[in-house]
């Protein structure tokens, strides 16, 4: 090099920080001096490398922000999906619960219970057995069905018409949690040719429903509805709610 340009001089030239005079002088030397040309070229390459480094570092920064943010957004989406799934599950449970509570198939015994009313006291007590029958009916009317069952069983034969006695015994047994006894007693009344037969059918149907024997209850209820007899309206309603 004709002139000993320093590292800083060449940097100043490339950064256009020289005075007009300095630049003109530098370029005049540059035109003739191969070594100076090589030195300037090397500075230019170093600048390009530095620019490439800055670009790569920026690229890394951008990628870091991009990936972290997308991951965060993705996490939010997953979180939202989880919440949505949880909400959907709760909704399904609520619907299922409501369905279970209201579904006739699941609530047949409960349905039968809701239609149960004790057969009314139609007993007129007279004669020597009156005290025992009165005591039994008193227990029945008070809802003391187990006690009533025991008292009904202890009544001397002929105290009460057998079909009526079976009706009271059956309803009491049904309420006392003895469905087999209820079924047995009520079936006799239901099959009888007495005025108590329709009531026997009704309570027998309820007994079947309590035991989820819907198929056995339905013909009895159909018969009650069609004949327009005892509990016609209730029988129709109950049938409509059965599966």
């Amino acid at each position: 090099m004709k002139n000993q340009y320093t590292f800083e001089d060449i940097e100043a030239y490339l950064a256009e920080e020289q005075t007009e005079e300095e630049r003109r002088s530098f370029e005049a030397d540059l035109e003739d001096d191969v070594r100076l040309q090589e030195a300037v070229e090397k500075h230019r390459l170093a600048h390009q490398l530095t620019s490439a480094y800055a670009a790569e570092r920026t690229r890394g920064q951008v990628a870091g922000v991009f990936n972290a943010h997308r991951k965060q957004e993705s996490g939010r989406m997953i979180s939202m999906r989880r919440w949505a799934a949880a909400a959907a599950a709760v909704l399904v449970l609520l619907v299922a619960g409501y369905w279970m509570m209201s579904s006739p198939q699941q609530s047949v015994p409960a349905l039968a219970t809701s239609y149960f009313e004790p057969y009314p006291d139609r007993v007129t007590t007279m004669g020597s057995e009156a005290d025992a029958l009165t005591e039994a009916m008193a227990a029945y009317n008070a809802g003391r069905y187990e006690e009533a069952l025991a008292l009904f069983g202890a009544l001397p034969e002929g105290t009460l018409q057998i079909e009526l006695l079976n009706l009271y015994t059956g309803t009491a047994a049904l309420q006392a949690g003895q469905p087999d006894l209820a079924e047995q007693a009520l079936a006799q009344t239901a099959r009888s040719a007495t005025a108590y037969a329709p009531a026997g059918q009704w309570y027998l149907a309820l007994t079947y429903l309590q035991q989820k024997k819907t198929a056995l209850a339905k013909p009895l209820l159909e018969e009650l509805r069609q004949e327009g007899a005892y509990k016609q309206k209730s029988a129709g309603e109950l049938l409509d709610q059965l599966p």
Binding site: A54, A55, T58, R59, Q61, V62, A63, F66
Partner: peptide, 17 residues
């Protein structure tokens, strides 16, 4: 899409700086 967007965003940042 990811690559192109990051590349474009990098260029944008450099041009702004």
């Amino acid at each position: 899409g990811d690559d192109v967007f990051q590349e474009a965003l990098t260029a944008l940042v450099l041009n702004i700086r």
